[in-house]
Amino acid sequence: MDRGFLSNIELKTFKGRIYYALAVGFLLILALIVIFPFVYAFTSGLKGSIEIFKSGLNIIPRKAQWHNYSQAWESFKMLKLFRNSFIIVIGSVLLRMTVSVMAAFSLSHLRPFGRQLVMMAFLLTLMIPSIAYLVPLFVTLGNLPIIHKSILDSYWGLWLPYAADAFAIFVLKSFFDRIPSDITDSAKIDGASSFQTLVYIILPLSRSIIIILSILSFMNIWKDFLLPYLVISDPERQPITVRLFYVAKDYGVNVQMAAAFMALLPPLLIAILMQRYLKAGLTMGSIKG
């Protein structure tokens, strides 16, 4: 590894070694603090209902009560909660990517009349915080203009709001802009329609950016609380993030912890498995107001 602000030779001196050991120590302690809630949820989920209230720093349970986990799984109906979350998130990501890819392709390669204006109108939504129009959004979803139907309490009420993401359009457009138009032109000469150009030329070339955006969207939508909390009031359809919080109070703390730990696993697993893509996407994705 190349040097940082300290050179490798400086690190080998006595002072350098002390500094390095202190830095590693600090980072490891910080890592412990950061991971602690996960570990604490896991081990508290294994404790008995009396043991969990015992005083003293007993992180590790005396005897692991694995049945807490199966009890939590059963009584919170976690399978259904996970299923609801997945339906909401996967539907939203698919719709968002479809809508954004098509719009970005049009803005970047078909370049119709007035495209700058359309792009500005998309980007405007990034500048206005979503709280500004949360209330009218709720009213709109409850009474759609023209057709006068309510999509509150249906998954469309979440899929549609999540599908509008100017950031994805912006990133995809900048990526498509770098694909030379000679490639799309030659496809056109060979008789490909715009749709074929998009599917057979553009999409394969931009697979990586689409995967990155999909993962980022997946995590952000999975995490979201306020919108699903407002839109879906039917407990049978609520995602895990909304439902679990409200039913948790009715059970013992140890069962709560077991359920919380299980609910943490899917996003954690995805973050760890997909970290190769995340690394590239995060720096790009997080500077978003």
Binding site: L110, A121, I128, L137, T140, L141, L160, A163, I169
Partner: peptide, 23 residues
Amino acid sequence: HITGYLFLIPAIIVFGLVAWYPI
């Protein structure tokens, strides 16, 4: 231009419904 707007229509409908109109 027409195909251009055909590809933009889904985004315009969605943004109109959940962003521009509510704003």
